[in-house]
C-alpha cells in the first residue's frame, strides 16, 4: 500500500477523460482518500481466508429466534432449476430487450433494431 494512483492510466481503464486542469484536482482528492483507505493495512486479517462469508446464523441468532443456517447466496433447489424455462430464464423478456430506440426514437441511433455506432475498423 501507500502507492499513489496513476490517474492517467486509471482514466483509460475506466473509459473516462479529464481535462489537464481537472486531473490535478482528481489526483489530490483521490490520493487523499487513498491515504485514508491505507489504514486497512493495519487490520490483522492473517487468520482469515477467502473473500466471501458463508453466513451461519445459528450461533448468532441463538436466543433470539431459531432459524436454519442461511448461506449468503441463494442455493438453487434442483426442482426449481428444472422448472425455470431456459429460453427466457423466467425473466420478463423486456429486461434483455436491447432495442431501446423504440422508447427513444431520437437517440441512440438505430436501424432495424440494431444500434448504429462509429466504425471500429477503418
Amino acid at each position: 500500500m501507500g502507492k499513489n494512483i496513476d490517474i492517467v492510466n486509471v482514466m483509460k481503464l475506466a473509459k473516462l477523460n479529464f481535462e489537464e486542469a481537472e486531473i490535478a484536482g482528481f489526483d489530490a482528492e483521490l490520493n487523499k482518500i487513498l491515504d485514508y483507505i491505507n489504514m486497512l493495512s493495519a487490520a490483522n486479517t492473517s487468520k482469515l481466508e477467502g473473500l466471501h462469508e458463508d453466513l451461519d446464523y445459528d450461533a448468532v441468532v441463538g436466543h433470539m429466534s431459531k432459524t436454519q443456517s442461511i448461506p449468503l447466496l441463494r442455493q438453487d433447489a434442483e426442482e426449481e432449476k428444472e422448472a425455470d424455462v431456459c429460453a427466457t430464464g423466467g425473466f420478463d423478456f423486456n429486461v434483455v430487450k436491447n432495442d431501446a430506440p423504440e422508447f427513444e426514437p431520437d437517440e441512440p441511433d438505430s436501424d432495424r433494431g440494431y444500434f448504429i455506432v462509429p466504425a471500429v475498423i477503418e
Binding site: I5, A14, L16, F26, L30
Partner: peptide
C-alpha cells in the same frame, strides 16, 4: 466519476 476511478484502481 471519482468512485468509478477509485474502484477501477
Amino acid at each position: 466519476k471519482r468512485r468509478i476511478m477509485l474502484g477501477t484502481f
